[in-house]
């Protein structure tokens, strides 16, 4: 298990004739996704734009995105994994238990129709949102959707892409991957990277009270974490870098105001399809950038006696 068959949004614009959005509401959360990248754009191999494309929305409730869809499939909450594995079986022509299909909220005919359409597409894509990846099953749901798309490549061209929320969350996956080998949840406590979501993921670390200091960069866990996690952030020395004084800043020992990314701070961010784009800030901030403040904190820590032998390989050279 592992590996993502994917492509850029430009390829989807020019080629995709079958588009599935699963557990996401782009009409409200990514308003220009339909018009700039996927549905309504005319592309090289889909010259008539919307007319050449079929869109399916899979969700637990009828969101405003359903109005844009040709087919809306309303499923029961927490049944994504069952549906994805049933689809994998149907795609391969295996038998499925029709009684257990009933509890997903869809009929076997609806699933057969979806599996057939997927196989008949010239170029298909599944965009999956947090309604899939953050509900019952979590990363197993993501793995199931990646497997389904990978297996569909025995019949046609099929790709997947997660609908990333925050502006540069893709960038943090990329930068951590190329520098530590893992995308998130990386412990460097032993001086080399170890990856273990559940052990080194923020919510778990905070709720268990494992960490004894926190540096929060452009996030507001004080407004979004479970209460035991927030309580722990208030108990330990927390440092916040943010353009505004946030909920987390109020419970932190140190807050440093920084320039706003892309508005008054330059740099690079990654789009959800892993394309890096330069920022063109329009304003000049009276505050320093995050980059500058983090570098200065790093330099201040580097002046202190080392806790372990320091590897030089990963330190930025500039």
């Amino acid at each position: 298990m592992g590996g993502k068959v994917t492509c850029t949004l430009g390829e989807i614009k020019n080629r995709a004739d079958f588009i599935v959005y699963w557990g996401g509401n782009p009409a409200e959360c990514h308003p220009r996704h339909f018009t700039k990248y996927t549905l309504t754009q005319k592309g090289k191999f889909v010259p008539n734009g919307r007319k050449d494309r079929t869109m399916v929305l899979v969700d637990i409730r009828e969101t405003p995105s359903a109005r844009a869809a040709d087919i809306f499939l309303q499923i029961k909450p927490g049944k994504d994994f069952e549906i994805l594995t049933t689809l994998r079986a149907l795609v391969k022509g295996h038998r499925v238990n029709e009684a257990s299909v009933a509890e997903t909220g869809l009929s076997i005919e609806q699933l057969r129709d979806l599996a057939d359409r997927m196989k008949q597409a010239r170029f298909g894509v599944i965009f999956f949102g947090m309604g899939l990846s953050m509900t019952r099953g979590k990363h197993m749901n993501s793995a199931a959707v990646l497997m389904l798309a990978a297996e569909l490549n025995a019949f046609t061209k099929f790709v997947t892409m997660p609908m990333r929320g925050h502006g540069n969350v893709t960038g943090s996956d990329m930068v951590m991957r190329w520098s530590t080998g893992y995308p998130f949840g990386v412990s460097l406590c032993r001086g080399y990277p170890r990856f273990n979501p559940g052990e080194f993921s923020t919510v778990d670390l905070l709720v268990r009270g494992d960490v004894d200091a926190a540096l929060v960069l452009g996030a507001d866990p004080g407004a979004t974490m479970p209460q035991p996690g927030i309580d722990h952030l208030a108990r330990i020395p927390t440092i916040v870098l943010d353009p505004k004084v946030t909920h987390t800043s109020r419970l932190a020992r140190v807050h440093i105001t920084t320039a706003a990314t892309g508005i008054s701070a330059p740099g690079t961010v990654y789009r959800m399809d892993e394309i890096p784009l330069p920022l063109r800030p329009a304003l000049v901030s009276p505050y320093p950038t995050d980059e500058e403040v983090i570098r200065r904190i790093r330099e201040a820590v580097a002046k202190k006696p080392a806790w372990a032998q320091r590897p030089a390989a990963m330190a930025p050279t500039n």
Binding site: G165, H166, G167, N168, V169, G171, S172, M174, V175, M176, S179, C189, T202, L205, L206, D210, V211, D212, A213, A214, L215, V216, L217, G218, A219, P221, L241, T261, A265, P266, G267, T268, V269, Y270, P276, L279, T289, D290, E291, I294, R295, R298, P316
Partner: peptide, 17 residues
């Protein structure tokens, strides 16, 4: 065991630091 968390609204250059 300090935790560095967030990273999603800062630039790649800042993430690298």
């Amino acid at each position: 065991m300090p935790l560095v968390y967030g990273l999603s609204n800062i630039t790649c250059e800042a993430q690298r630091e």
